[in-house]
Simulated scan of single mutants.
Amino acid sequence: MAATTPSRPRARLHRAVDTAVGGWIQLGDQTRFFAATVASIPDAVHRYPGEVLRLIAQMGLGTGALAIVGGTVAIVGFLTITTGALVAVQGYNQFASVGVEALTGFASAFFNVRLIVPGTTAVALSATIGAGATAQLGAMRINEEIDALEVIGIRSVTYLASTRVLAGIVVVIPLYCIAVMMAFLAARTGTTAIYGQGSGVYDHYFNTFLNPTDLVWSFLQSVAITVVIMLVHTYYGYTARGGPAGVGEAVGRAVRTSMVVAAVEIVMISLAIYGQSGNFNLAG
């Protein structure tokens, strides 16, 4: 017993060092994969335009049971309707508690554009398009289909990862437009139809505080989030191991990682854009 006791701290130290080294190695592998994927996007457009178009249709309209409800477009629309309704409920009640419920239109124009729509889009993309990409690539990996692509001379990273990142960027354009419109519509309907606020009052404060520049920044923020989400999901799918159980674990890890990274990205981009001046003047 006395001989084994001093070795326990050394064993824990070795495990901690191995864990840290393994984490750095994995981070390096991810960085190399991300760089190769982004650099291969022009090659994917040139060599595999048919695959890019197929993935755009699949991501936007869905396949199988997902296509019945309208695909990712319908899912994002329903999600942003609920978040827009929450702006009406919380905004009206909170402003009414201090006697300025007329500013509910300001809440919709301000929070929907800057935070809620990009965040909701990130969750929808991660849970639908991203998870599907991870499952598809993971299944191909454990069935040795990716190795078969390499054998016949197809660049697997370009064909599988770069095409999906590019398709995600294209698909997010209509998704963002639908998300913004549904959020604005839900907030206005909830405030005017349910709480009885005059539509003229709501529209006045909404139009006063809706800044077109913020919409452009919000769209670019959603595109940047999409790139990161697709990179994370394609990496975990491409490197999946351990059979069907390993694919399921890869999907779970990818969804968790992409949501955390997307949240951090939203905070960092918001601070970079609005951190100094805020681009906001309370008036009207």
Results as ranks from 00 to 15, higher is better:
Gly77Gln: 05
Ile68Tyr: 09
Gly22His: 06
Gly70Ser: 07
Thr37Met: 12
Phe78His: 12
Phe33Tyr: 13
Val52Phe: 12
Val21Glu: 00
Leu61Asn: 11
Val21Phe: 07
Gly50Tyr: 06
Ala16Asp: 02
Gly77Ala: 12
Arg32Phe: 08
Gln58Ala: 15
Gly60Lys: 01
Leu55Asn: 10
Thr82Arg: 00
Thr80Lys: 10
Glu51Lys: 11
Gly23Met: 07
Gln30Phe: 09
Asp29Gln: 14
Val21Met: 10
Gln30Gly: 05
Thr31Glu: 00
Gly62Phe: 03
Gly71Phe: 05
Val21His: 08
Ile41Pro: 06
Val73Lys: 09
Ala65Met: 06
Ile25Gly: 00
His46Met: 13
Phe78Leu: 15
Asp43Asn: 10
Thr19Gln: 08
Ala35Tyr: 03
Gly70Lys: 03
Arg32Asp: 09
Thr37Ser: 13
Gly64Trp: 02
Ile75His: 03
Ile25Lys: 01
Ala44Val: 00
Ser40Glu: 09
Ile25Gln: 03
Gly22Phe: 00
Tyr48Asn: 06
Gly62Arg: 03
Gly71Arg: 10
Leu53His: 04
Gly50Phe: 05
Arg47Tyr: 00
Arg54Tyr: 07
Phe78Gly: 15
Ala67Gln: 09
Leu66Ser: 15
Thr19Cys: 08
Ala39Asn: 09
Leu27Asp: 02
Tyr48Pro: 00
Thr82Pro: 04
Ala20Pro: 03
Ala39Gln: 08
Ile75Asp: 06
Arg15Ile: 13
Leu53Ala: 14
Ala67Thr: 03
Asp29Ile: 05
Val73Tyr: 10
Ala65Asn: 06
Val52Gly: 01
Ile81Asn: 09
Val52Asn: 02
Ser40Leu: 01
Leu27Asn: 02
Ala74Ser: 15
Ala57Gly: 13
His14Cys: 10
Ala16Ile: 05
Gly64Leu: 03
Thr82Val: 14
Leu27Met: 00
Ser40His: 01
His46Lys: 12
Ile68His: 04
Thr19Met: 07
Trp24Gln: 12
Pro42Phe: 07
Val21Ile: 05
Leu27Ser: 02
Thr80Phe: 05
Gly64Asn: 07
Val52Glu: 05
Pro42Val: 06
Thr37Ile: 06
Arg32Ala: 11
Asp43Thr: 08
His46Gly: 14
Asp29His: 09
Ser40Gly: 07
Ile41Gly: 13
His14Trp: 10
Ala16Thr: 00
Gly28Gln: 02
Ala35Phe: 03
Gly71Lys: 04
Val69Ala: 14
Met59Asp: 06
Pro49Lys: 05
Leu79Cys: 15
Pro42Ile: 00
Ile81Val: 15
Thr82Gly: 14
Gly60Asn: 11
His46Phe: 09
Tyr48Phe: 11
Gly22Asp: 02
Gly23Ser: 07
His14Arg: 15
Val73Ala: 15
Leu53Asp: 11
Leu79Met: 14
Ile75Phe: 06
Gly60Met: 13
Thr80Trp: 07
Val52Gln: 04
Met59Phe: 10
Ala65Ser: 10
Glu51Tyr: 01
Gly70Asn: 08
Leu55Asp: 12
Val17Ser: 10
Leu55Trp: 00
Ile41Ser: 15
Gly28Thr: 00
Arg32Ser: 10
Arg47Pro: 01
Ile25Arg: 06
Leu66His: 13
Ala57Lys: 08
Phe34Asp: 09
Ser40Lys: 04
Gly50Arg: 03
Gly23Gln: 06
Val38Met: 12
Val17Gln: 12
Thr19Phe: 06
Met59Pro: 04
Ala36Cys: 08
Thr31Phe: 00
Ile75Tyr: 08
Ser40Arg: 04
Glu51Phe: 01
Gly28Ala: 08
